[in-house]
């Protein structure tokens, strides 16, 4: 029973990882790529770690996997928006189909 739930979670995680990487390949500029991959790959890896917890049952490995999961959920968005900010500051222009861009106007005002 535990193994079945673990398999379902691992497959869900793999599918979301795959879509995140597909977004990394298909989307047209840095910000959209960041958008797709930061969400999908975080959830996908969390799914794989939850599957590991289901496979192993309660024990040392599961506790470590849970700590790793919490750590990834806390740090992945932080590194994502550090990279988005760095991309704007280093002068990468948004894609030509961008509708509106309020950050470029106000960028110099914020330290």
């Amino acid at each position: 029973m535990n193994e079945t739930i673990g398999m379902v979670l691992v497959v869900t995680g793999l599918v979301f990882d795959f879509f995140g990487c597909l977004g990394l390949v298909r989307f047209p500029d840095v910000y959209n790529r960041l958008q797709a991959s930061a969400k999908c790959i975080t959830l996908g890896t969390c799914g794989i770690l939850l599957g590991l917890i289901c496979f192993k049952g309660f024990g040392a490995t599961s506790v470590k996997a849970f700590l790793c999961l919490v750590f990834i959920i806390l740090t992945a968005p932080v590194s994502a928006h550090a990279l988005a900010r760095a991309a704007y500051r280093s002068g990468v222009k948004p894609w030509s189909g961008t509708v509106e861009d309020e950050y470029s106007k106000d960028m110099d005002g914020i330290k």
Partner: peptide
């Protein structure tokens, strides 16, 4: 900021 990054269609830039 973190939860905005992980919710539908939005990412915090600054």
């Amino acid at each position: 900021a973190n939860s905005v990054t992980l919710t539908p269609g939005t990412t915090t830039v600054d």
